[in-house]
């Protein structure tokens, strides 16, 4: 679907989060020069067309006690990748699954899955099961646990206005 400049500004305005006040959509509308109804109908359309995959509370895994965050990567023959990816995403522990390009010699892997767990042992156990049951165990793979988090915030596609819940 086509996204116009106003949609982009709306998503930009939401990058810091929907304000915590009784009429948040009205507040966002005020920043953008839209009515509450226009904000709501644009959001509904962005969600129903799949531009917005999910609208809701965004949690931080680490602070919830899911301290082991692994990016698991495989080098999969290109023609087998979609089939294997679809098998991998059947597993609840997989929160994201992507194909990305290899960059030889630095990076030989083309299939990426994110797995979150309480601890590394759990993640490794989940990965073993996934590898066995999908056949991915035969492909070269690596597991990259996260160390320090230096930054985590919403993507900013567009300059956003100051997002405050004003008394206005």
């Amino acid at each position: 679907m086509v996204i116009d400049g106003t949609d982009e500004r709306l998503l930009g305005a939401l990058a810091d989060g929907l304000p915590l006040c009784p009429r948040p959509y009205d507040e966002v509308g005020r920043w953008l020069g839209l009515s509450e109804g226009q904000v709501l109908s644009r959001l509904r359309r962005l969600i129903s067309t799949g531009v917005v995959k999910r609208f809701g509370v965004i949690v931080r895994h680490r602070e919830l006690g899911y301290r082991a965050n692994a990016m698991v990567v495989w080098d999969v023959p290109d023609q087998l990748l979609p089939g294997l990816a679809h098998k991998a995403i059947q597993f609840d522990c997989v929160t994201l699954c992507y194909e990305r390009p290899r960059r030889q010699p630095d990076w030989p892997y083309n299939l990426f899955c994110m797995i979150h767990g309480k601890d590394r042992k759990t993640v490794r156990r989940q990965l073993d099961r996934l590898n066995r049951q999908t056949g991915l165990q035969d492909c070269p793979h690596d597991i990259l646990f996260s160390g320090q988090c230096f930054k985590q915030k919403g993507a900013r596609y567009h300059a956003a206005p100051e997002l405050k819940c004003g008394a206005a």
């Binding site: 996204i3 962005l46 609208f55 809701g56 509370v57 965004i58």
Partner: peptide
């Protein structure tokens, strides 16, 4: 929850490559 860093925000997760 936000002050305790458990919640990042109430927000939209945008499908990759649809915006920007």
């Amino acid at each position: 929850l936000q002050n305790r860093n458990v919640v990042s925000r109430v927000g939209a997760v945008v499908k990759p490559q649809t915006v920007g």
